[in-house]
Amino acid sequence: MSIVACLKWVSHPGEPHDERFAGMSPADQSALEFALRQAALLGTGVTAITVGPSGADKVLRDALACGATRAIRIEAPTTAAGTDVATAIADHIADAEWVWCGDYSLDRGAGSVPAFIAAHLGAEQALGVIHVDLEADGVRATRRLDGGRRELLGVRSPAVVSVEGATARLRRAGLQSLRTAADTVIEVVPATTPIHRAEFMVRPYRPRARELPAPAGDSPLDRLRLLTDAAAASAARGEMVTLEPADAAARIVQVLTDWGYLPHG
């Protein structure tokens, strides 16, 4: 039974050019913690893996100090493309049964790498998980859906699970293991396929500001309600349609354009 924790060495959003502030994203910390808990439950070890330059050894040493049994760094530039990162990881963990990832990293936040890894491995995937119950024969995971809904998943190996940052707090490393980890040799391996720099930065979704007409209510309270849609909360503009994937994507783009979230043309 092999358990892998995928970690990314990320810069601090407030100090993007200072490596002293760089480290593991909260989501990756949660993923590592679940990997360690699962390893304890199943009586096995955890392999921590990262893709990056030598500075990324820091997150691997942190993982070793917390209890990971093996650490692998795939040599790559800092801003490697997510698809290439996933390919490189998947090539090195082909026999992994459980792969734990953070749902997205602090620096780019696309959350795509876990899905790509699952695709490469042909594994089940449970992405964006907010609650995890570890069991001897699998994992019960709770996913966040739109509209406050939840999805309960029974996951069996081989699987990739990505967790949100608040799902678990990474254990504090013991002093002796911290000392040992500081001197442990990290396995550095080349990527099996070329790793390219990311061509663009993916950022968390931020709707652009829209120009709205002034509300026409008689009283300030009416105008406030109109402005905030408070009175129309029950009249949501959503609609349920059943379309082929390509048509569904085109419809979503059209609606977002109509609503002002995407530019016309």
Binding site: R172, A173, G174, L175, Q176, S177, L178
Partner: peptide, 9 residues
């Protein structure tokens, strides 16, 4: 004694 688990040095 440090604040870490097994923290005596």
């Amino acid at each position: 004694r440090t604040d870490r688990p097994d923290g005596d040095l």
